[in-house]
Each structure stands twice: as C-alpha cells, then as structure tokens.
Design a protein around this nucleic acid. Structure first.
Lengths: 188, 188
DNA sequence: ACCTGAACACCGTTCAAGT
DNA sequence: ACCTGAACACCGTTCAAGT
C-alpha cells in the first residue's frame, strides 16, 4: 500500500471517528506516519484528499451493487438490497456519506470522483431496470426512476440523520419510507 | 435591528457571497461593525450563529408556504409553488440551503432551529394534504407523503447542484423531476 | 449589560532544503 | 522522486479589562 492510499485510508478512519472537522492534514499525516505536509506531495489540497476518499467509497459501493445485481435473489429483493447499501453506509459512515451526497461543491468537481459516481449510479440504475422488467415499477426511463429513487433515499437518509424522519412518521427507519414509496409506485 | 439580528443578516450575506468557508466570526463581526469577538456576546459559538441563520430561513420559508397555502390557486398549483420555493432557495442560496438540509449535525440539535424546521414542514404537509383531498394523490398519511416529497425534492436539488441530475436525465431542472414523480404517484 | 484587545492553540498552505 | 522543518497568514475561542 503506497503512501497516497495510506493517506486516504487514514482520512477515512478520521472521518468515521471524528467527522469532517477531525480530518486535518496534520492528523492524517500523523496517523500515516509522515510529516505534516507530506500529503501535499500526493494531493494538491485537503479537498483533493477528501475527494479521493469519496471516489474510493463510490468504487466500493459500485462493487457492492455489482455483486447484488448478479446475485440470485429476485429483482425486488435486489432493489431492496441496493437501497440498503445506501442506507447502511449513511448510518454507519455519516461523514463519509456526506462527502458522497451532501457536498455539492465536491460533487461538482471534474476528475475521478465524478467518474466513480457515474459508474456507481450506472449499477444502481441497472438494478432498477431489472425490477422494471418484471412489470412491477412504472415504465419510465430507468435513469429517471434511478435518479428519483436515489434522490428520495438520500433525502430520507438526511432527514433521519437530522432526527426529522421519526418525528413525523411511524417508520422504524429509512427502509420503511423507501418501501412505502416503492409500493405507491407499483402497479397493483 | 439589534446586534444579534445584524450578525445573523451579515452571516447570511457572507454565506451567499462566499459559501460557508467565508463565514468567519471575524468577517461577520467586521461586516457588522463590531470587534472580532463581539459575536460571542450573542452566540455561544460559530455553530450557534449558523443555526440562527438557518432558523430564520426556515421561518421565512414557513411564511412563504403559509402565503401559498392560502392563495387562490388550485391545490395542484399550490403544491407546485411550494416545491418551487424549495428549489429556488436551493438554487439561489446554496450555502444557506445546505445549512437547512445538508447539515445533519446542525439539524440534530435541540433549540429554535428544530422548532422552526417543524413549523415549516407543518405548512408543507398541509399543502400536500389539500392536494390529496382532490383525490389526485395517494391516500397515504399526509405526513408520510410530505416527508417523501420533501426528501425527493432535496435529493434532486443536491443532485442538480452537484451536476449529477442533467447528466442522467433530459430534465431541464429539478422541477421536471418532481413533476415526473407526482405524475407517477397520481391516480390516473 | 455589552464591548474591546491581547493572547492561545490550531490549521491549510508555501517555501527552501535535504536524501 | 519523495520527504522534512520552519514559517505565514488565518481562525475559533478564552480571558482580563474597560464603559
């Protein structure tokens, strides 16, 4: 594992343990065992290091979605599992989740992060398309449905993280809200 | 206008002009014409000042929704207008929008911000309920539909701000995505 | 009650060297 | 090619005074 990868891993751990504010370049460098400005030899700025963490997480998410998409479950189960990947990541890694979906400035950048995000969304959309083909979701373009479902998932995850979800609904969690929406969208 | 309100207004302007990073207590104080730590006499910390900006914005949003709710348009138009308030605020004040909906740590706090957010969502839910009563939306609990629609709106606004919306769809903007969802949810 | 000014510990980033 | 150490300008926050 080269220094750049170790810096990314250290940053991810700091995000998990202390949130975005904990990710100072000095702390990342110390956790990696290099001097306080060695990171600049691998990343132009702190934001670029964070973008690298986000890109790696999108890659991992895409890999999970590939696994789910080719798993032997039913299309409906695969869709539920795909959504659960998002929900679980948001719950277990809130700061890293924020990098992926709550940071428009980061998302708007060119580069590997944008590419990784598109790759991941491709897999997500494919899972949705499989479920559409069972006739159980509206026949809208798969990309439209994928964007809508991802958007709703994201909104519900944020609402729950801020404590706003359970104050207004009797849902046990984000999954219940998503299943409610899917039921409303289903053709029966 | 007292000092606390002027500090909040100055912080809001800095958010609009330079994003969250531009809101240093020193810049806020300078823009307000007080010394660099006078803000501490009105807010315990920078986060509390930001929370006050967010609470004020939720109050303004709630007021807009009250106006829309009691306007003479049709329920469907009122729903579209209510959603447009969100979309427009996200587009025109991205940093302040982020304080309202992209900052779970802030949203999770107790205090006036939480209260203001609930008041605003109450109005939004009422507008949805009016449209439900026309029979043109599913008969799910209004709070459920309100949370789902607000979540989708938020997700689409974020996707668009990050440039991810228009790369995957032919929608001209967030509004098109929302109308697509509403159509899919409608009973005809 | 409200404000000021100095000070502290910290941070991102730059620069000049080192191997 | 990769890293180190000093330095700079800045920031949130604290503290001791001032009126």
């Amino acid at each position: 594992m080269n220094t750049a990868d170790r810096l990314v891993a250290a940053a991810a751990e700091l995000l998990d343990s202390g949130g975005e504010v904990a990710v100072t370049l000095r702390a990342v460098a110390a956790a990696t065992g290099v001097s306080h400005n060695a990171p600049y030899k691998h990343f132009p700025s702190r934001d670029d290091l964070l973008a690298a963490v986000a890109a790696a997480d999108f890659d991992a998410m895409a890999a999970e979605w590939v696994r789910i998409r080719t798993s032997p479950s039913t299309p409906a189960e695969r869709l539920a599992n795909a959504l659960d990947v998002l929900v679980k990541f948001g719950r277990e890694h809130p700061a890293r989740y924020g990098l992926l979906f709550n940071s428009p400035e980061l998302a708007g950048r060119e580069g590997p992060l944008r590419f990784a995000a598109e790759e991941a969304l491709d897999q997500f959309a494919a899972i949705i398309e499989d479920q559409q083909n069972t006739g159980d979701l509206p026949a809208a373009p798969a990309d439209h449905l994928a964007v809508l479902l991802a958007a709703t998932a994201h909104g519900l995850i944020n609402a729950d993280a801020g404590g706003r979800l359970r104050r207004r609904t009797n849902w046990a969690g984000v999954g219940d809200g998503l299943q409610t929406l899917i039921k409303l969208l289903s053709n029966h």
